[in-house]
Simulated scan of single mutants.
Amino acid sequence: MSNYKTMLTQQEIIDQTATHVQALLSGEGSGHDWWHILRVWNNAKTIAATEKADLFIVELAALLHDIGDHKFHNGDETIGPRMATEWLTQLKVEDNIIATIVAIIKELSFKGAGTTSDMSSLEGCIVQDADRLDAIGAIGIARTFAYGGHKNREIYNPHISPELHNSFEAYKSSTAPTINHFYEKLLLLKDRMHTKTARALAEQRHKFMEVYLEQFYAEWEGKL
């Protein structure tokens, strides 16, 4: 790791951040809880192992990426970056490192099928890949229905078609059934991974979702 001049060691900063985030998010029931953070953190470290990235930035951004998710703050996209800045400033992390981490948090979110989510750093690409891996596959399916239930959404309504949103505002304001989310986001993520490692991991998870949907529709129509 690089030698950042802080009163705490890098490992102490990471450990304290993990403890802080765990305290904030433990017990959350929509699929955006501490265990999601832990999985993204682990995914990010796995991906970073094959990339020439700053692991200190990757780990902190992974830990803090959902510290103030706009979905739970009336769509306010400024809360997460602000909370991360306040926390890292308290730990006396250098300003340029804070700026990079905050940029990652601002850029990370999926913003709709018809929009782009460009990352301005390699570290950001890694954390976005790690977060998107946790949105697909078996765990992604579980999280999708947990969030749908949290928002009181229908599981499926054959009369409501998926919509490929062309703006973040349209995507954020959607109240569509949960199954639509597979087509509006989840099935699109495999081809939007940045790193070779994430693309390889996404393949199997993507196939699992396709099999799941086949089973879902067969059961829905009474064929199985």
Rank of each mutant, 00 (worst) to 15 (best):
F56Y: 13
I57Q: 04
I57R: 01
I57H: 01
E59D: 09
E59M: 10
E59R: 11
A62T: 02
L63C: 08
L64R: 00
D66L: 07
D66F: 04
F72H: 13
N74S: 14
G75L: 05
E77G: 00
T78H: 05
I79T: 01
G80S: 11
R82C: 10
A84P: 03
A84M: 04
T85L: 05
T85D: 08
E86A: 14
W87M: 06
W87E: 06
L88V: 05
T89K: 15
L91G: 01
K92D: 13
T100A: 14
T100W: 00
V102E: 00
V102W: 01
I105G: 08
E107Y: 05
L108W: 02
L108T: 07
F110D: 04
K111V: 03
A113P: 00
A113R: 07
T115Q: 13
M119W: 03
S120R: 09
S121A: 07
L122Y: 03
G124F: 00
I126V: 12
V127Q: 10
Q128M: 12
D129P: 09
D131M: 03
D131P: 04
L133K: 05
A135C: 12
G137D: 08
A138R: 14
A138N: 12
I139Y: 13
A142K: 13
A142D: 14
T144L: 15
G148I: 05
G149N: 15
K151L: 12
K151R: 15
Y156A: 06
N157L: 04
N157K: 01
P158N: 09
I160S: 04
E163H: 14
H165L: 02
H165Y: 15
S167F: 02
